[in-house]
Write a protein that binds this DNA or RNA. Sequence first.
DNA 1: CGTCCACGTCTAC
DNA 2: TAGACCTGGACGG
Length: 397
Amino acid sequence: MPEGPELHLASLFVNRVCEGVVFTGAVRKSMVSKSCDVAFTCDAYRIRAASRGKEVKLTLTPFKSHVNEGRLEPPVDIVFRFGMSGSFRFTSEDELPKHAHLSFYSNETPCGVLSFVDTRRFGSWQPNGSWQPNRGPCIMFEYKSFRKNVLLNLSNRAFDRPICEALLNQKYFNGIGNYLRAEILFRLNIPPFVQARTVFEGLELEDLAAGNITVKEELSDEKTSDRAGKNKAQPADLLRLCHTIPLEVVNMGEKGYDPEKSDYSNFKAWLQCYYVAGMKSTRDHNGRTMWFSGDAGPMAPKERKSTKAKKTAKKEGNHDFTAKKKVAGIRSKNTEEAKKREKREVASRKQKLKEEVEVTDTRDKTRRFPRRKTSGADTKVEQNRRSSRVKTVQPIG
DNA sequence: CGTCCACGTCTAC
DNA sequence: TAGACCTGGACGG
């Protein structure tokens, strides 16, 4: 689950399991990984982790007592991005997870192994690297500079985009991902496809309330404006929620992260909009699913994109193909034929879509987080809809 | 069996 | 602004 909070929880996880552990030898990379080797070998070193937005940095520090020919090796930083499926695990040597791509071995017996696990391999790492320079300040732990970086750059074309798309721009919102943008906009009742700039204009550079923020405060605005409609002068602050909402997830603790149990019940219960039954969803201009309720906003894509073309017959010689995939590849080997068929399919799909409403109500699109057992009228929508549960968060930075 | 979908970048027309 | 990059789970036929 890698957005900002998960990356941070991953760094906490690493620090917890590596506390007092002595690592030794070489850093080992899986055969299949295309990321670079980590040329680091040391008899005895420790591992610490830190996070910033959607990156985690591991620092490998040789112990002073272990000196290589009179010279102490300097620490090495490795910066990780998690892609769609990255995580860290700590296991015994013979329980190495299936998709472990970079592993650090302890000197214990039995040997403990910290590994970077990444099923889809969209993740990456950079040894001797530092935070990616074109990513902005961390939404969670560099709140002040994050806020300034947005408000001082509102003239940038990034803010011409709809707000939901701007929120995924890591140059300004380092740590926000697809579930966070949905949750954040939902809580403020901001239509996802209004121009980003208009949402931020008028916000104060300094957030005076920072450091003493509760979610209740955020929502109180909007409740009173319901009543009087006079509250326009003090709009709920989207930038602050970009900070506090991710911290709510962090404060749920490693339960939300724990790769061992993969028990997401806490997290699922926390979600109010993303993948929640009864919410609407549509594709944004980049083909990402935007979850929301109410108005889509004026910049909503008019016609949904035709679903991505099949990429079947592309990679014949790929050694990495499973037997199944090979069959599929061979079957559609005749590219001419495949293309024609594809055209026909796309055409008929477009035709269908024309007749559909632009934005679909997705009452049963709840798949990724497996179906909840429905318990009568106790629907999630009902529970969460503008729920005024108070949660205190501890903003840092 | 096949199709669609997923918590994210990247680079190449 | 498409695709490419991947694996695997849910679901439909």
